[in-house]
């Protein structure tokens, strides 16, 4: 008996490995997606190890050195120094920490409620439960997220925590709508009917039967959304409603450096390029996943 179970387990493991290998094969067909993945891994590592690999970790936050203010890019300072003498390269790498943290926290908080509500609405399709959930979703999607995020953050004290809170509050409807689209079509399929007839609980049907079938589009959308959330966060901090100085935040750095254009261009252009690169990388990886999972539209 135990032997059998072990054999089953090993077989399923081998099956999984084959699926994974096949997925990677499909993914690696697109050189741009592979490039995006490599860039993301590099950015992730750099952000995680920021205090150890940056040349001047002390200059990331509150620090002034007017002797070295506004120096152009050189071997000592790859991206030059900003208007109060901090190393721009160091601050960009530290800035990635906050961008990635924002993306992870927002999606971590925002996706789960959206998925659960979407599953419930899909399971109860055609009833008042669906109507309440989906019409509420419509209200949240009636204006672009940036506008509502601005309204919420402007009402609260501007800081990183409130920025995360505001964006997370706006992120569940997108997943609710996505999951609803998939789950409401699963609702009438035989395996869901069968589970229902065999007396499975609603929780079992939602999370064990329906959820696994929604994972591919959810995962793809999450990858693409990391880019969008980082973009939104950068926009908020560009306006001044995100993390406050001296926190090294990419959007704030762009806004701050823009005051010194065109002379000290490095203070703006490098953080701006850093934002573009990370968003681009997430988009490329998301596109690759879309090919692997053959997801039509997310």
């Amino acid at each position: 008996m135990r032997q059998e179970r072990k054999a089953d387990f090993l077989a399923s493991l081998a099956q999984r490995r084959r699926t994974l290998a096949k997925g990677w094969y499909k993914y690696s067909r697109n050189p741009l997606s592979v490039l995006g993945l490599v860039v993301l891994v590099l950015i992730g590592l750099a952000a995680a190890l920021a205090p150890h690999i940056t040349p001047y970790p002390a200059q990331a936050g509150a620090y002034t050195d007017f002797q070295n203010a506004g120096k152009p890019p050189s071997f000592e300072h790859f991206f030059g120094t900003d208007r109060i003498g901090r190393d721009v390269f160091t601050r960009v790498v530290f800035g990635y920490r906050f961008s990635l943290l924002l993306g992870i926290v927002v999606l971590g908080l925002g996706v789960a409620p959206g998925v659960v509500l979407g599953l419930i609405a899909g399971y109860h399709r055609g009833t008042w439960v669906e109507a309440v959930i989906m019409r509420t979703t419509d209200v949240f999607l009636a204006v672009p997220p940036l506008v509502l995020a601005l309204a919420i953050t402007a009402m609260l004290t501007p800081n990183l925590l409130n920025e995360m809170f505001a964006i997370a509050l706006l992120w569940w409807p997108w997943y609710c709508r996505l999951v609803f689209a998939v789950s409401s079509s699963l609702r009438s399929q035989f395996f869901v009917r069968e589970a229902e007839l065999s007396g499975a609980s609603e929780a079992h049907i939602l999370f064990r039967e329906m959820l696994p079938n929604c994972l591919a589009p959810i995962l793809t959308k999450m990858t693409l959304d990391m880019g969008i959330v980082i973009l939104l966060g950068a926009s908020l901090s560009f306006i001044g409603l995100g993390a406050q100085p001296p926190t090294p935040c990419l959007g704030t750095m762009v806004a701050d450096g823009a005051k010194r254009l065109p002379g000290e261009w490095w203070g703006t252009i490098f953080p701006a390029l850093a934002i573009v690169i990370v968003i681009l990388a997430f988009n490329l990886v998301g596109d690759g996943l879309r090919d692997v999972f053959a997801v039509e539209e997310v």
Binding site: L32, F238, V254, A258, P262, I279
Partner: peptide
């Protein structure tokens, strides 16, 4: 297209302002 989709509008605005009006 890839670049256009990944670039925030404020970055484009600043880059355009920098190149076309300031430089």
């Amino acid at each position: 297209s890839y670049l256009g989709i990944a670039t925030p509008s404020f970055v484009i605005a600043i880059l355009l302002m920098f190149f076309f009006s300031q430089v």
